[in-house]
């Protein structure tokens, strides 16, 4: 395993472990969503390839999330949390309320 792949394996396992604690029952989807929104395509491709070639070192949650990543389905954009000053009717408002 190359140093980069080894690092990616550690990273995805970290993410999966965190979501197992945060969202029991939803850890696979949360890990998949995170990888999609924060990882460069090259990193994703490399970890998918690693899974396809045996996936040494990957946790069960990591494996399931990466398998979903390989399906190329896209999760929803995360932007909702960052909209400022736009109410339900599209009018601007201050975050100060």
């Amino acid at each position: 395993m190359s140093a980069t792949t080894d690092k990616l394996v550690r990273m995805v396992n970290q993410i999966a472990t965190e979501f197992e604690g945060q969202q029991p029952g939803n850890a696979v989807a949360a890990t998949w969503d995170h990888l999609w929104h924060f990882w460069d395509p090259r990193m994703r491709d490399r970890i998918v390839t690693h899974l396809d070639t045996g996936g040494e070192g990957l946790s069960a949650t990591s494996r399931a999330a990466i398998a979903r990543l390989g399906s190329r389905a896209e999760p929803q954009s995360q932007t909702r949390a960052t909209e400022f000053g736009v109410d339900a009717d599209g009018n601007t408002e201050s975050d100060a309320g």
């Binding site: 954009s77 995360q78 960052t82």
Partner: peptide, 9 residues
């Protein structure tokens, strides 16, 4: 800028 994800069409 403004923390909007690049996947936001």
């Amino acid at each position: 800028s403004g923390y909007r994800h690049v996947s936001d069409d």
